[in-house]
Simulated assay, not measured.
Amino acid sequence: MKLTFTIFLLILMISKSEAQEVINLYPGKIPNAKVNEVYIETSDTSKTDGNIRIGKVSIPKLTAFYPEKVKADGTSVIICPGGGYRYLSMINEGKAVAKELNKYGITAFVLKYRLPSDEIMIDKTIGPLQDAQQAIKMVRENAAKWNLDSTKIGIMGFSAGGHLASTLGTHYQKSLIDNPKNISLRPDFMILGYPVVTMGTYTHKGSKENLLGKNPSAEDIKLYSNELQVNSDTPPTFIFQANDDKTVPSENSLDLTRALKEAGVKTELHLYQAGGHGFGLHNKSTKESWFDSMISWMEANNFIF
């Protein structure tokens, strides 16, 4: 009997630590979509790093990770994994980060967004942004149901996911989705990890080509260079990156920080001398934790208490 009760407690503890819910992002028709029955989602676990890389996403979803009720403070963060707009790094830049946020009472939503593709989209340049807009609309609409504060919803993104997050944070005025209640699509804050920001000189070429195509117009290059889209209403932003990043040049973070400062937006940049690209939660080159610094920044700006 004692052993049975112990097993029950262990199951209960595991279920609490893994508390999650998978939600279809669109309850009805997916906007900007083309039917393609041979376009099948892929899942790559072949690498030895324990990560899962998801490709060919055509049905976007939100996976909600809920903190223990006694810890929950109403703040929520939507996480956009990176992968060059070619795949999604679902563990390293998704689930692992979500579970860490839960420890601080933050509800996390990992966004499995559609990757830009002419095979399944009428206009691939707006597909990922539509999904990010739908995600924040859904979270804000359901804030009361999920015991969330509708004024403390942040967007977080890594690498190309950082481009998507910063696109939402600078392109929220124009709704690309059905939004009859005119719910605000503006994130209350942004957290960007080694982000692709620009489509200009210092861009990540793979992300640029996957999103905009091989020969994008000058107008599209400017439109999706998010350092050029900052204004005084852009959300407060926390940024971290390694200065030796050979995949996404640190100028992306530096130029965005400069633009935010010039616009009078609260921003904090942590630029490490080493760490490379794609380090997720842990930059092994330093004892400093960007995550701890981020939590301190959130506390200083009253996003968490």
Rank of each mutant, 00 (worst) to 15 (best):
G200L: 14
P216E: 01
N231Y: 00
T267A: 11
A108D: 09
G162P: 00
K2T: 13
V77D: 00
K145T: 15
H277D: 05
Y87N: 14
D292G: 02
G200D: 12
K205D: 06
D178M: 13
L185V: 12
S285I: 08
G206R: 00
S225L: 01
G154W: 01
T45D: 07
A108C: 05
P116C: 10
T4K: 13
I78Y: 09
W146H: 06
V38S: 15
S58N: 10
R114G: 09
K174D: 13
K47D: 10
W146Q: 03
A33P: 10
N243Y: 09
G280C: 04
K284T: 13
M121N: 15
L260N: 01
K34Q: 10
V70R: 08
L185R: 14
V38Q: 14
E37A: 14
D149C: 08
E219R: 15
L212F: 01
D149Y: 02
N179W: 04
I79S: 08
M199W: 02
V196W: 05
L185M: 13
E21A: 03
S293E: 13
T234R: 00
M121I: 06
E262H: 10
V38A: 07
A108R: 07
E68Q: 11
P60F: 11
P60M: 09
T75I: 01
E21I: 10
V196G: 11
Q173F: 06
D118P: 09
E18G: 03
L223A: 06
Y172D: 05
M138Y: 11
L164W: 00
A263K: 12
W146T: 06
T6I: 15
L101I: 08
N210V: 02
N210C: 01
P180H: 13
S58K: 11
F65I: 05
